[in-house]
């Protein structure tokens, strides 16, 4: 079993705070009915994941992983881990690509339903389905 010493708690506080932020984003995605707000929540979730990864790459007393321009590298120098940085750079760009696609979908949904509220979209869908069942239900072999 893990011991909850002070150094353990302080050393894990970053993971816990970023988890809190991540869950705030998830809550927005699940709870809010407005589609633009859902995208904002998704972005928050994403940024929290980025923070989690970057915080794993940090080394105490380290600096940004950039050598001096004359390439005279001090063997004593401590650098943070560059691998999470590379991964997250790629992830940010992919993230904006998915965000723009999601926003374009919202524009298209608004064109079709004249609303960007999830509840209203579901209501319209239900009305449409009920109307179609009433109209075509018999010919499709349903009851009545």
């Amino acid at each position: 079993m893990t011991e909850f010493t002070l150094s353990f708690i302080v050393g894990h506080m970053n993971y816990w705070l970023f988890t809190l932020l991540m869950m705030t984003g998830l809550y927005i995605v699940v709870d809010k009915g407005n589609l633009v707000k859902k995208i904002v929540g998704l972005n928050m979730f994403q940024t929290a994941v980025f923070m989690l990864y970057i915080s794993m790459g940090k080394v105490t007393g380290g600096t940004a992983p950039i050598f001096p321009t004359d390439m005279n590298i001090d063997p004593e120098a401590v650098y943070s881990n560059p691998l999470p940085h590379v991964l997250i750079l790629t992830a940010i760009v992919v993230g904006i690509a998915t965000t723009s696609l999601g926003l374009a979908l919202i524009v298209r949904i608004r064109e079709e339903y004249h609303t960007i509220e999830e509840a209203l979209i579901q209501k319209i869908e239900l009305e449409k389905a009920t109307r179609e069942i009433r109209e075509f239900g018999e010919t499709m072999g349903g009851p009545e």
Partner: peptide
């Protein structure tokens, strides 16, 4: 957190 490249991309 020493991730300057990530910072300016963000």
């Amino acid at each position: 957190l020493d991730a300057v490249d990530v910072a300016f991309t963000e």
